[in-house]
């Protein structure tokens, strides 16, 4: 069973995590599971099921109402100020809308992944070391975008922008990458390029990757393990070997159909 594998060395653990929004909406309901180091985990579920919220509780972009989220066996709730920034530094994040600064160059966007390693005044003046500029170039090499290094981000196609966003995350030297619907605004071919890149980072660098996806087919193709959310509840959790399409469909049923 999954549980025995997780207990050995979980990088992330959810312990009775609840999230209730100010307007009373339940975001997450008693979430309990562990994510082992180096796993490629895909979270599936309908829009509004709480996938984005779940992802963002890990790097505290969203606060939880009760329970505990542990990263490297430490509760993230206690962090603030500098220690919170250091937590976020080891967790790269990829977004549906890429979230690049469109008017800045690709190089500057990639270097911006490093800012938590530098004091603020050096970031403002753009004083990055020659070594780090070389690393930015290497990060772009890994996502096959070296030719675009001095182009402005808005000159790039959607798939290229997402790869720049991955390069930015790589600069953080992350232990974890969170990807929130990374391919929702991309066409099928660029989707493959982006998912393959994430898979490579997972296999070659041992980065734990957690991806929110709509598509069950993609989930089955890339995941080591699939968890399903419905209305804020964890309703599905299987290793890829045990995943069946019929059982997954259950995740996508609305409450009235259950």
């Amino acid at each position: 069973m999954q549980a025995t594998a997780s207990q050995s060395d979980p990088i992330i653990s959810f312990r009775h995590v609840n999230k209730i929004y100010n307007n009373g909406t339940v975001g997450l309901k008693d979430i309990n599971f562990d994510i082992p180091r180096g796993q490629f985990l895909v979270v599936v579920g309908l829009s509004g099921a709480g996938k984005s919220t779940l992802l963002r509780t890990i790097n505290r972009m969203h606060e939880i109402s009760s329970g505990e989220v542990l990263v490297d066996n430490e509760s993230v709730s206690a962090y603030k100020g500098k220690s919170l920034r250091q937590l976020r530094r080891k967790i790269g994040m990829i977004f549906q809308n890429f979230n690049l600064v469109k008017r800045s160059t690709v190089e500057k966007n990639v270097l911006s992944g490093l800012v938590s390693y530098y004091p603020t005044w050096k970031c403002v003046l753009g004083l990055f070391s020659a070594d780090d500029r070389k690393r930015a170039f290497q990060a772009l090499t890994r996502v096959s975008l070296t030719k675009k290094i001095f182009a402005r981000a808005d000159e790039l196609s959607g798939g290229q922008q997402q790869r720049v966003a991955i390069a930015r995350a790589l600069m953080q030297e992350p232990k974890i990458i969170l990807a929130d619907e990374p391919i929702a605004s991309l066409d099928p071919r660029t989707t493959k390029a982006v998912m393959d890149t994430l898979q490579r980072l997972n296999r070659e660098d041992g980065i734990t990757v957690i991806v929110n996806l709509h598509s069950v087919e993609l989930a089955q193709q890339y995941a080591d393990r699939i968890v399903g959310l419905r209305a804020g509840e964890l309703v599905y959790d299987e290793d890829i070997a045990n995943v069946t399409t019929e059982a997954l469909d259950h995740v996508y049923q609305t409450d009235s159909e259950v």
Binding site: M61, R88, R89, M93, V115, S116
Partner: peptide, 9 residues
């Protein structure tokens, strides 16, 4: 949001 997630001040 992206800069915040990177750990920027």
């Amino acid at each position: 949001e992206a800069m915040k997630s990177v750990g920027a001040s």
